[in-house]
Amino acid sequence: MPREIALRGRGLVPGRAEGEALVSPLAFGFWHGIDPRTGEIVDERNPLRGRNAAGKVLVFPYGRGSTGGSSVFLEAVRCGAAPCAIVNIESEPIVTIGALMAKEFYGKQIPIVDRLDRNPLEVIESGDVVLVDGDRGEVVVLKRR
């Protein structure tokens, strides 16, 4: 039986999604961070470079970098290459607006939860299966080992 860990936090963008976690130890910006057509991580400074974020639960501490990130995120949504959910320590508008726009303009729900009772970067590892509930502000982690 995989070990299950439940975290509680703030549901910023509603919706429920489940996927494999992809965890960036570094703050992440979508502009020059992801190829919106494929979901591939292209940030030269990020250890996830070359991995693919499409359909994954993308976990990173904070947003960073230039403020066009939300439009790159929306383009990834249009191309079907966006993460299915996002978990942060703290989400800034650059991260959340892309998801609000996805709902308003493409009818897609990409839940975002932040301010969890434990540091998500210490609990979640890439490859874990993670359920993100943006309505209730909950994150359930199924440890792969």
Partner: peptide
Amino acid sequence: VESSYQLTGDSGIEV
């Protein structure tokens, strides 16, 4: 900032 097609791709036009 969503003036650059490099950022927005076709979603910018659609928005």
